[in-house]
């Protein structure tokens, strides 16, 4: 099924949407997925990608050039490994690590990651910001007001910078990693580790590059209409910005052609607002016609589009997928 979807490469917009709706999934606790796809930002990321390819090599945990200068040519002095501790106490050591330490630990080796996966961590919400800098933001839903921001940046900074800020009653932990030329691959590996270790959904993505969408689908594919996966998805929005005059009607037809849709005119009970992350309420644009995908359990997935025009002939095109029940 996925290969069929990839043939829908009429545009980034259409292929992303098609893959999201049709491919398989093992996710079961999503509430919201928002994709922001802005072509005008693509060039910056492309630069980053090209820079990465120039220096690309082994991923983060396997590259010698990521070592600190003083230690780059020496073997670890301490050859008595934490991993040789008896399993019970090893797990207890790891269970005492903080979130950012667990993430760093999981990057050390496959075995370290597998050990970290054995701990029943509190689930997190994962948000990805994939623009000029690559950033992942983690929060514990309904937990202490703490946020972890881990960012690969393109600016000349130290190799590794970690700090925590107390803002009012909330704590913001920042981990900044220098882009050593392979930031995209390193970032992907880190996010995959977070996803695996904490077994938590990626609930929001802002990106400007289709490669990230395909990667996300690979690690967290989606399949709403078959019912068993992405069961709790409430709202999906894909946003594109373009100077070009896209023929949206053709795109929409291409995207939706394999789905068993019914057309609904007027509002037949569909909510006009969605709550996002319990933080704010988003009022949905008014539309006269929606196409409905009805799941076996009676949930309705309503598909509709909206447009916002800006100066210089830039138009934001939004694709909405709203899940509700009559």
């Amino acid at each position: 099924m996925r290969s069929t979807v990839h043939q829908l490469s009429v545009s980034n917009y259409s292929s992303i949407l098609g893959v999201l709706l049709l491919s398989n999934s093992h996710l079961n606790s999503d509430h919201l997925l928002i994709l922001t796809f802005a072509e005008r930002r693509a060039s910056k990321l492309a630069e980053m990608s090209v820079a990465g390819k120039r220096k690309a090599g082994k991923p983060f945990s396997q590259r010698k050039n990521n070592k600190l200068p003083k230690k780059s040519k020496s073997e670890p002095k301490n050859r008595i490994s934490l991993l040789k501790l008896p399993r019970v106490v090893l797990l207890e050591c790891i269970a005492n690590l903080d979130i950012s330490e667990i993430i760093v630990f999981s990057l050390l080796s496959k075995r370290a990651k597998n050990i970290a996966k054995l701990i029943p961590w509190s689930p997190l919400t994962i948000r990805l910001l994939l623009e000029y800098d690559l950033q992942v933001t983690l929060k514990i839903p309904n937990g202490p007001d703490q946020t972890w921001n881990i960012r690969y940046n393109n600016r000349e900074t130290s190799e590794f910078l970690q700090l925590s800020k107390l803002i009012g009653t909330s704590v913001n932990h920042c981990l900044s990693l220098k882009n050593n030329g392979n930031a995209i691959e390193d970032f992907k590996q880190m996010v995959e580790n977070i996803y695996e270790v904490f077994q938590s959904p990626i609930c929001r993505i802002d990106t400007c590059d289709e490669q990230f969408i395909e990667w996300i689908i690979k690690i967290q594919p989606t399949e709403w209409h078959k019912g068993s996966k992405l069961h709790n998805l409430e709202y999906l929005k894909i946003e594109t910005s373009s100077l070009r005059n896209l023929n949206d009607k053709n795109y929409a037809n291409e995207i939706l052609k394999d789905l068993n849709l019914t057309v609904s005119v007027g509002n037949d009970g569909r909510p006009t607002k969605v709550r996002i992350d319990d933080e704010f309420v988003n009022t949905l644009p008014h539309v006269d016609v929606v196409r409905n995908l009805i799941r076996n359990d009676g949930m309705i997935g309503s598909i509709f589009r909206s447009y916002t025009s800006h100066h210089f002939r830039i138009t934001d095109r939004c694709f909405h997928f709203q899940v509700w029940r009559k």
Partner: peptide
């Protein structure tokens, strides 16, 4: 003991933690 091990990882980069915990690179 376990808490002390965990505390020692605070603020460590990947390479520093690798050195501290004696976890070799995959190719080692």
């Amino acid at each position: 003991g376990c808490k002390t091990v965990a505390n020692s990882a605070k603020g460590k980069s990947t390479e520093e933690m690798r050195e501290l915990f004696g976890i070799p690179e995959p190719w080692e």
